[in-house]
Every structure is written in C-alpha cells, then in structure tokens.
Computed example of a mutant assay.
Amino acid sequence: MTETGIISLELPPLPYYITTGHTTLQPGEQHPNRRNIGIFDLLWVTQGTLFLGEEDQQWEVTVGQTLLLLPEPYHYAVKPCDTETRFYWIHFDYSGRWEHSVESGGGLPYPIRHAWKNPYSLRLKQYASPFEFPLAERHLRTLLLSTDRRRSESFWHEQQLFMELLRLVEEGYHGEVASPALRLAERTEAYLRQHYQEELTYETLAEALHYHSNYIVRCMKETYGCTPMEYLHEYRLEQAKLLLIKTNWPVARIAEQCGFQYAPYFSSCFKQYAGVSPLRFRKQYIP
C-alpha cells in the first residue's frame, strides 16, 4: 500500500457537486477499471475493503476510509473483494488550478487574502481516514436520498452537504498530515492579521509565538511563499484599499490605521503596489 500525498485545489472556483451513488460488491466482484473520466471520484467505504490502484499506486480502502480518484489517470481493481463491500461515491467537477503533491507538506502555496478576493488552497489527503466518518456517513445518506427530489429543491442542499464533506476530509489532512511548519505558518498569519495595525518586528513575533524568528520565517516561506513581513506589508496595503473606498478619511489617517507610521512612505508603498497613488485609487471608485 502506498501513501500518495495531497491534492491541492486553488479556490476560487469552488469544486462543483455532480452526484452521489452507493455500490455493494459481493465477494469476487470488483470496482470497474477506467481512465480519463474527466471528473473527481471520492469514495467512502462503509463495509468491507476495496482493493484499488491508480497508475503505479495501490491501496486497501477499508471501513472509515476515503480515496480520491483523479480525473485523468487509469483506475483499476488490484483484486476482487474478499468480503461484501459497500461504499458511497461522489462525483464532482473542478475547473480551477489543482496539483497532486507526493510530499505531505507540498502543494500550492497558501494565498494572501486580498481586499476583493478571498482565495484559499483546499488540501485533501488522497487516501484518508476522516475523524468524523459517522457524521460524513449521515451526510452521504442524505445526499443519496436527495437524488429523487426536484432539482430546484435539492440543488443548494446538495452543494452545502458536499462542501461539508470536503471540510471533513480536509480536517483529516490538518489533523494527520499537516506539518509543524504549516501549523506555525497559520498561527503566524492569524497573528499578523489580528495585529497588523501595530508596530510588529521579528522580535515581537518570536515573543508572541514562542519560536525563533528564523524558524518562523522559514515556515512562512514554505507555506505562503513570502516572509512574515512581506505578508504583513501586502495585507496592510489591501486593508488600505478597503478604507480608501469605504471611508472619507484622509490618506494620513488611513496610513496610521493600517500600521504605517509615515504617510509619505505609505503613499510610496501603495503606488508601487497598486500602480496608482492612494487618492487616484480612490477616485477610480468614488465619483
């Protein structure tokens, strides 16, 4: 059996739910072999064991485990089931950028939240054991029953349950796979966003997070592709964008509100970042 790392999906767009089914295989039967199906196939085993492969990877997926089969590779049965095996399957589509990383700490970098964007990198362990599998099974039963309802009744409820199931799988990733570096980078990000209006240094970060500043920098670079101060600088400028169009405050007050001690320095940084001065930026949106 082979561990296969992480599937990273860059959001937006969101994954799009298609349908759910339930299959029972008797001893001697097996999952069908397929290739290039063009959609993701998320399997949830509730009884028995599935013996499946994808290209050169092979798994034994047993009760309480999930397997995410990718859209293009060849999927095949390694061998028939040796006991009665039951599993749910979810088909979903995704038109955005995604990546399969063999290393558990790899994948797409986590993005910085911008004033007009709320990007996120969804990470799903391809072969997983979600902590709340009984809750997932209840959601799966509900999804299966909804296939007989009118489309106008079922659409939003199905999408909501599907996103909840993805959340359960991702929680498994963060609980089982997430490295100490990722956890510290997420703590650092949260601290920076909470205290961005204050004067922050690597010394204050080290004191607040109880780690050496060099280690904090390395973790942020691995996770977000930037240093903590680079993240802080961009986040402050994004908050400034919001204040420029949501308030009538003078530039000096906005600079101070966003953690810049000197208005001229803020204006210079803003123009370099946004391509226009703060006042010209405001005029683009306020007549």
Results as ranks from 00 to 15, higher is better:
L122F: 03
E238P: 11
F266K: 03
F281Y: 14
N36H: 12
S277F: 04
C269L: 07
Y202E: 09
K241I: 06
W98N: 07
T147G: 09
W44R: 05
L205D: 00
R167S: 14
I112S: 02
L243A: 09
T147Q: 14
L237P: 06
Y110G: 01
S152L: 08
P264D: 01
R86H: 14
V276Y: 01
Y211N: 08
G275L: 06
E176N: 15
K79E: 15
D148Q: 12
L182R: 10
S129H: 10
V251L: 06
R150F: 01
L124P: 15
E230G: 02
E207R: 03
T19V: 14
K221W: 08
A115F: 14
E256D: 06
H31Q: 13
G175L: 15
W59S: 02
A178K: 05
Q159V: 11
I216W: 02
A128P: 15
T46K: 07
Y120D: 06
T23M: 13
R253D: 11
V61R: 00
I6K: 06
Y76I: 12
L192Y: 00
Y231C: 04
S267N: 04
S179F: 07
V45C: 06
R193A: 02
P80C: 03
H91M: 08
F260Q: 00
V78Y: 08
L244I: 09
G259K: 00
G96R: 02
P180H: 00
G64I: 00
L68D: 03
E103S: 12
V276D: 03
Y224G: 01
W98R: 09
Y224N: 03
L182K: 06
E153T: 10
D148R: 08
L279N: 02
L70Q: 12
A77H: 11
R138Y: 11
S146Q: 13
R236Q: 15
T20E: 11
Y110P: 09
E198C: 03
S267A: 15
P80W: 02
P180F: 00
L70M: 12
F92R: 04
K79H: 07
F51G: 10
E54M: 15
G175S: 07
E164F: 05
V45W: 07
T49L: 06
N118P: 08
I254Y: 04
Y173E: 12
L25M: 08
Y120E: 04
L108A: 01
R236Y: 09
N118C: 05
T62L: 02
Q65F: 08
G106D: 04
E84F: 09
Q26S: 15
F40V: 10
L140E: 04
Y191N: 01
E186T: 05
L14M: 13
L135Y: 11
R187Y: 02
Y76V: 14
N118A: 13
P250T: 04
L243V: 01
C226H: 05
I90F: 05
K271C: 07
G275Q: 05
S154T: 07
